[in-house]
């Protein structure tokens, strides 16, 4: 099995007639994703590689019931597009938009939380359930990166994901579902919120998180593990261990995070919670091996 998206998922693509949208919607279909309809206001009646286009999400889902929406919508219009999908009753949404205004991101996450929806992104390459379905811009065709297997992956990064996932495959493993939560300061969904899904998925035997310095998402994963919400083997790799102290956000940043956010602190919290932390990408495979045999 997998989480979030699978062979049975019925997906609409918002922004399907754009250059990116059309290109990647075709790839999503080629990989096996059920793309049932597309949405671009003003373009109803067209079709993109056989995908029928509608003016709005409501008009699309009236003809083609769907449970997932993938957005290829510019950052300025992402909030409106997410709200449109929520309004039409869709509860799983993924957006790759890089550059969503911060206050829009806050409203997007808040709206999703208030109606039990999950928004993945922005600033992500998307989601892939290996061998089943893909949302976004993930190069599923690179066999040495996206082989099917039993490891769940959550990541904040794009290019580092390919790097680390290649090491998972090199270690003799493959992935169930990889979710890019994205690199924005306020992602729609946080690592720890995905853990219950991986915990419930029998096919996922272990989870790898690909983190970075900054924020508190890795610490929240450690807390979830300590609380027994997630009990499977957990391996983490994080970039930025030796990064020079960067921009500080006045005093408020330190007050909000309570001094958390360094890779050193994240590593200590994760190890305390029983996870293993790789110092370099090539250690991820062997660490998984030490758990899974």
């Amino acid at each position: 099995m997998s989480i979030f998206v699978n062979k049975q998922s019925r997906v609409i693509v918002q922004g399907v007639t754009g250059k990116e949208g059309a290109f990647w919607a075709k790839h999503m279909k080629d990989m096996g994703t059920q793309v049932v309809a597309g949405v671009t206001p003003g373009k109803e009646g067209q079709n993109v590689d056989g995908i029928p286009v509608y003016h709005s999400v409501r008009r699309a889902t009236a003809e083609h019931p769907a449970d997932v929406s993938m957005l290829f919508v510019p950052p300025k219009f992402t909030k409106d597009a997410v709200f449109e999908a929520l309004d039409a009753g869709i509860r799983k949404i993924c957006t790759i938009a890089d550059g969503i205004p911060l206050h829009d991101a806050i409203e997007i996450r808040r709206a999703a939380m208030s109606c039990g929806a999950m928004v993945i992104g922005g600033n992500t390459s998307g989601i892939i359930s290996a061998g089943e379905a893909m949302l976004g811009t993930i190069p599923y065709w690179i066999e040495r990166v996206y082989r099917k297997g039993h490891v769940g992956v959550m990541t904040r990064s794009g290019s580092l994901t390919n790097e680390v996932t290649a090491e998972i495959v090199k270690g003799g493993f493959g992935i169930t579902t990889l979710i890019g939560v994205g690199g924005d300061p306020v992602p729609g969904t946080r690592f720890a919120e995905l853990l219950p899904l991986y915990e419930a998925d029998d096919d996922t035997h272990a989870v790898v998180i690909i983190g970075e310095l900054g924020g508190t998402m890795e610490e929240e994963v450690a807390e979830a593990r300590e609380a027994g919400i997630f009990t499977k083997p957990l391996v983490a790799f994080m970039g930025g261990r030796t990064a020079p102290e960067g921009k500080r956000m006045g005093h408020a940043g330190a007050i909000v995070t309570g001094g958390r956010g360094t890779v050193k602190g994240k590593t200590a919290a994760l190890i305390q919670a029983g996870a293993k932390v790789a110092k370099r990408p090539s250690e991820v495979g062997p660490l998984l091996r030490s758990f899974l045999g």
Binding site: S159, G183, E212, A243
Partner: peptide, 10 residues
């Protein structure tokens, strides 16, 4: 990319 760059830096 930020992730790969900070990793290479490390």
């Amino acid at each position: 990319g930020a992730g790969l760059t900070t990793t290479v830096f490390d």
